[in-house]
Each structure stands twice: as structure tokens, then as C-alpha cells.
Nucleic acid binder design. Structure first.
Length: 373
RNA sequence: GGAUGGGUUCCCGAGUGGCCAAAGGGGGCAGACUGUAAAUCUGUUGACGACGUCUUCGAAGGUUCGAAUCCUUCUCCAUCCA
């Protein structure tokens, strides 16, 4: 299913074959948490900005519209009108990000819905059931993402539980994939390495989950408050202990610099809300660094966001016009910014793949990062 | 012509003797955001030779140790009556 096409140092140029098509890695997955890229971007738009994979969320879709609705509508792909791969996050991250609304137990997590406050329970089996109903291409294991500030004892206990949960996820997926009315019987599972910033816990956990023969291995719990150096140190420590013949996924990361550092260390998959959220907030990625279109200096700037950019936004519109749209809170402003940022990220991944093929990744990275230091 | 209410910092609007360069909102300016409770949140927004000084609350006078706040006149606006 996954094969490495070539390598350049530790950087890998890979290809993951799924029921919904091939994914060229390294890849940046475009985040559409609630089955839509925020900012008014449609699945039709994604075809014009080099999107390979969309990411949606178990927790959000379970609450609304409800995974049963999505199942009755034929699964996420049909629902969204998107025939390429979709990765669904397990809801585990919400245990962390909605920390004020939950209680963690061995069986799973008790949440309070952020929509109406009602109590909901989600454990490994529930998460797998929901993801099976959503019929995504890749399901993520249900994990706990401990805070980067949690103490070692807490992190060790949490990681041990996450390992037990992972085995339950694996069993449940096997069962679900064998059921008659399952939409995607070839759904695959990625496990998630945790351990905060404790190298010993991370490495031990990586070894344990490496034995489970999963379709892919994610590194979670990074970019949650620790420094970049700590994050890179953990990647250096963990990646050698993950299976070489499986794709690696660095969850929730990150800035262009974070991603290039990850690729250099052998990461295949990335996702991050930055290009979409920053786009909505008027922060645009360019090869000269990030710019904030709200700044007064762009009021009369006739240039596109980035000169020479082939994205649907830069082909037509000036910084001045987009700034006006953003300030006037016109929907089009956010949409144009999100399209540009996703195009920037997706193009960067394309360039990175080419660079690895040409054995020039180090040079590419250095040149790309000059604007982001 | 008469009656009443009102004119506050870029805008709206609170404030009725000192704690007022003046609440709050908007707008402006800037910052944050890493598996999205995020079209959100934070800071700042009179002028300087800046822990101090100076100029501001329609205008001009006055009362007071002290006025955006009290008094007088003027002026403008709104509504109502002729």
C-alpha cells in the first residue's frame, strides 16, 4: 500500500495507495473539520489548488450533522462531493482542546457537547464506529494528547492507556470492516505516538505500537506549547523507532518551517489549521514571508498577494482589493485568502517532493526558509 | 414667536463638582493563533521634550481651592405648539 519512491537523506518521497486513490507524499492535508474548509471553499475549488487529501473530524461530525446522517447520505465523500482521500481525526485531540468539558476514564472520555452542552461519551469503539459511518479513507486511532506541561507520571499513565485504546481501535476496525453494511470496508487505521516531550516514553511507545502492523504511524501531541527545538528533538528521537515501510504523520503541524523540518526527518503526512485560519485572519504566506493584509501599508498595493503565484486569487486580485474585502468583512475576502494559503502549502509540498526526487531537498529547504526565519 | 429636550474625545454614546484625558460600543492601528468551540482573542487609540507637562467635553464669560458637570448670555440641532 505504501511505497517509498526515493529518499534524500532521511527525507522520503512516498506513495500511499488507498481505495480512494494514490496519495503522493510528503503531503499536506487540507483541514475541513466539519466537512468543509472554512472560509467558503468548496470541494470543487480544491481541485484547482492541488489538494490531495482532506481532513475532517469525528467529534464535530458526530455532533453535527451526526455520523448516522452522513452514513445514510452515503458517506463523507458522497456527502461532500469529493472523490479523493479523506482522513478523519479520531476526536482524541478534542479531549485536549476542550479540556474544560471532559473527564477521562479507562473506557473512554466523557465530553460535554460544545454545541448544546449535552453529555456524550466517546471511547475507542465509539470513535471507530463513527469513523466507519463517515467512511473516511484513513481513520485515526482514539488517543489522548497530554499537555506538553504534564508531569512524567501523568504522561506515562496516559500513554499506556492510549496504547490499550489503540489495540481496541484495531480490533473494532477489523470487526467494522467485515460488516455487510459498512460503506468503506477497506478503511485503514493510523496509530498515534504520544509521550509529550519525554524521549524515553516516546521511544518506548513507538516500539510498542510499531509491533501492531498499522497502516501508518502518527506523531501526536506536538506543537501544543513546547518549543520548536523540543519538537525537533522528539522527532529525531521517535522517527527511527517507527516502521520504515509505513507512512509517518506529524499531526497538527505546522508552519512552513515546521513542515520542512519534518520532511527532512522523514515525515510523510502533515495537517494544520494555519493556512485556513491565518487566511481568514488576513495573514498570507508568500516566499518573502508572512504578510498581514490588514496592515495599512497594503491599502494602495496593486500587487497580488504574491507576484508570479498561479493560485486562483493571485491571478486576478490585488492586495488592496483583498484588504478592502477583509476589512469590510465580505466573505469573498476570507475565501480568496484561504485559497491562496492552501495553494501555497500544497505547492510547497509539490516542490518538496520534486526536490527529494532530485536529491536537492536540503538546498530547497534552505532557500524556502530564508523568508521564515 | 412659544415650549421642551439636547450639543462629550474619529463616530455613536455614558458621565451631573474632585477618584476624568473622560465608561462602553463602533471604527482605526498593531499583535496572537500549530490533529479548528477560533469570520476568534489580545493590546492600543488627544498631544508632547511621556512615572511629568500641555490642550480637550458647542462658544464666551462667571461661581469655586477645584467645572464635561453649577450660573449667565450667545449659538446650533431635534421634537411639539402657534
Amino acid at each position: 500500500m505504501y511505497k517509498i519512491l526515493n529518499t534524500d537523506g532521511n527525507a522520503k518521497r512516498g506513495e500511499l495507495t488507498t481505495v480512494h486513490g494514490k496519495i503522493q507524499t510528503p503531503v499536506f492535508m487540507n483541514v475541513g473539520t466539519a466537512a468543509a474548509i472554512k472560509g467558503g471553499v468548496s470541494t470543487q475549488d480544491l481541485n484547482g489548488i492541488k489538494t490531495q487529501v482532506q481532513l475532517s473530524n469525528t467529534y464535530h461530525l458526530h455532533l453535527r450533522p451526526g455520523d448516522q446522517v452522513v452514513k445514510k447520505m452515503g458517506g463523507l465523500q458522497k456527502f461532500m462531493v469529493w472523490d479523493k482521500p479523506i482522513l478523519t481525526d479520531s476526536g482524541g485531540f478534542q479531549v485536549f482542546s476542550l479540556s474544560s468539558l471532559r473527564k477521562i476514564k479507562e473506557e473512554g472520555v466523557y465530553f460535554s457537547s460544545h454545541i448544546d452542552g449535552r453529555k456524550i461519551f466517546m471511547g475507542p469503539e465509539e470513535s471507530m464506529q463513527i469513523q466507519s459511518n463517515l467512511a473516511s479513507t484513513i481513520a485515526m486511532a482514539f488517543d489522548e494528547c497530554p499537555s506538553s506541561k504534564a508531569d512524567e507520571k501523568y504522561v506515562q499513565d496516559s500513554v499506556d492507556r492510549t496504547t490499550r485504546w489503540l489495540k481496541r481501535c484495531q480490533d473494532e476496525m477489523k470487526r467494522l470492516n467485515s460488516l455487510e453494511d459498512t460503506i468503506n470496508k477497506e478503511q485503514i487505521l493510523f496509530g498515534i505516538n504520544q509521550g509529550a516531550i519525554f524521549e524515553n516514553i516516546r521511544i518506548e511507545h513507538a516500539k510498542q505500537i510499531a509491533e501492531l502492523d498499522l497502516a501508518g504511524y502518527a506523531i501526536g501531541g506536538l506543537a501544543v506549547g513546547e518549543t520548536h527545538d523540543e519538537m525537533y528533538r522528539i522527532l529525531d528521537a521517535v522517527i527511527p523507532h517507527l516502521p520504515k515501510d509505513k507512512p509517518t504523520y506529524l499531526m497538527g503541524v505546522g508552519t512552513p518551517a515546521n513542515i520542512l523540518e519534518g520532511i527532512e526527518r522523514g515525515v510523510d503526512f502533515f495537517d494544520c489549521v494555519y493556512p485556513t485560519r491565518n487566511g481568514r485572519h488576513g495573514h498570507l504566506y508568500t516566499n518573502q514571508g508572512k504578510i498581514n493584509l490588514f496592515n495599512a501599508k497594503y491599502e494602495l498595493d496593486e500587487r497580488p498577494i504574491e507576484e508570479g503565484c498561479d493560485c486562483p486569487t493571485c491571478k486576478f486580485y490585488s492586495r488592496s482589493y483583498i484588504r478592502h474585502l477583509l476589512k469590510a468583512k465580505e466573505m469573498l475576502g476570507m475565501r480568496l485568502c484561504v485559497l491562496h494559503n492552501l495553494y501555497f502549502y500544497n505547492t510547497m509540498m509539490e516542490e518538496a517532493r520534486e526536490a527529494i526526487e532530485n536529491n536537492s531537498f536540503a538546498k530547497y529547504k534552505k532557500q524556502k526558509l530564508e523568508a521564515y526565519i
